[in-house]
Amino acid sequence: MKHLDDGALGALSRREPEAVAYFATHLAHPCETCEAFLATHPGPGLLDGQVDSLLLGLAPTGASAPPLDEVGLARVRRELRAHRPAAGRWGMVAGGLAACLLAVVLLPRMRVADPVGQEGSAVEWTGEKGRLARIALELSVVARDSAGVLRRLDPGSSVKDSDVLLLRYHATEAGTALLFEQRQGAAPELLGHFPLVAGTHDLQGPQGLAGVSLAGEAGPVTLWLVGSTGAPPEAETVSEMLEGGSGAGPQGQGPLAIIRFDVSVRSGQNRP
């Protein structure tokens, strides 16, 4: 008796009549050998996907449309643009650094990021406290190099592509924030959602201290922190707003606090 193997699967993929006729009969009855082969070998064609589609379709689906996982999509987009393997291309990295250490470095330099006068700034927002929003934000940034050494940054600072940027904010109210990264000539990309707590804190997500990896970056990079007191606004709408340089908040989203921080990324190999 003949069972499925690579040769038979090839013959079925080519629709060879003899193989088709034989296996149409043979597979009419349970066959542990063939089932074991099918379990471990993809194909023929898209049969695996069709089986999974059918099986996963058994469960009831929710009445409402699934929400968009904006962070996941942002990661996919980032990877698509980078044309690099997944490892090392995540925009956000969890920092193992103690928050108190960051606070020591940043608190003396806490300041409002002011894009006015920064090179390459194409938008009109000043990032000044309370300008358009019920919540006001301040943002400070330090760079952590590959040796773990921290240094505070002024807006427009030059950083290495091996650096990780760590963010600390001051918020006048509790709320939520969206963090975007924007390269020169490209649309802002969402890096993540973060809860905001009134006062001065490290930007921190569920997985710990948030950092922005600059691996693979080159040239001007802008970080945008967009805060709101209510539910987070639609990331896509905010991204379009940031890209368009409009100071008006998304319709129906309420006032936003928007602050930016620019850096210039250079390759670590070219470091003087």
Binding site: A24, L27, A28, C31, E35, L54
Partner: peptide
């Protein structure tokens, strides 16, 4: 889960072979 799935895959393959390619 994989064992059950392989049965479904066999069944669908058989039906495809019988219904489409014969």
């Amino acid at each position: 889960l994989e064992r059950f799935r392989s049965r479904i895959k066999r069944e669908l393959l058989r039906r495809v072979l019988a219904g489409r390619w014969e």
